[in-house]
Amino acid sequence: MSSAAAQSASGSGPKAERFDPSIAHLTHVPRRHYGRWIASLLILIVFAYVAKAFAEGQIDWKVVGQFFTAQSILSGLGNTIIMTICAMALGIALGVLFAIMVMSPNPVLKGVAVFYIWFFRGTPLLLQLLIWFNLALVFPRIGIPGLFEARMVDVMTPFVATLLGLGINQGAYTAEVVRSGILSVDVGQTEAAKSIGMTRLTTLRRIILPQAMRVIIPPVGNEVISMVKLTSIASVIGYAEVLRNAQTIYYANARVIELLIVAAAWYLMIVTVLSVGQHFLERYFAKGQSRRKTRPAARPTLES
């Protein structure tokens, strides 16, 4: 078999005539995937059943449509988006800062960063949110002596408490992501940067972080998407985001599922838009990396 294949491949030798070249023009028929057809059919049946159940269930779709663009829902949506942006910005800023501190040779900075990551990753987010919101119980007044002073209850609004709670908690996770991104960049890059006279900070800014972004973007994209949904837990301390406002409405009109569907649809829409954005961001930071020729498969990428 193998020797015959070798012979026909070389196309020479007296035995080549044994093969029938006239079949070369016959049509190739791909293998049929019966398993896939059966699986598709089963899934269609299940899907139709679920769709039927929802269509016949006690859901008033008119109410869903009516509240989909209600003033209160839209303003809640706005608050959700604003909080996602602010908390994520705070989280990324703290994440980069603490990632650099964790990797610092300075034992004091390193210690502070290790403690920060340990503390905020080690306690539930809901608990942190409640602590921030109730901080006035411990510190009734806040300020710098002689400069300004205010009552803590006035400062720690639901917005501020949510921002601090989500942002600082997020920073602890992002710090680990940024650290792994920095570690993914070859030490040779740092040495080359030093050899052309760059200081440590310039090396980080110009050489290391831009390359670390390739590794950092996918998990941070995931975290932005989680953050959109995490803002919903701020409803417990009265931050008027989309879920909170949906709840306020259904407390009044008892259309619980309808309003939850409205909220779910809006979350899905935001997340879909963000996923598309993440795709383009990943492509941008992959420049110079995607067409690797000289060192193929130098580093396996772990992207989901």
Partner: peptide, 10 residues
Amino acid sequence: FQRFNLFQHM
């Protein structure tokens, strides 16, 4: 350097 160490993103 032995391994060139060109900046990969440039």
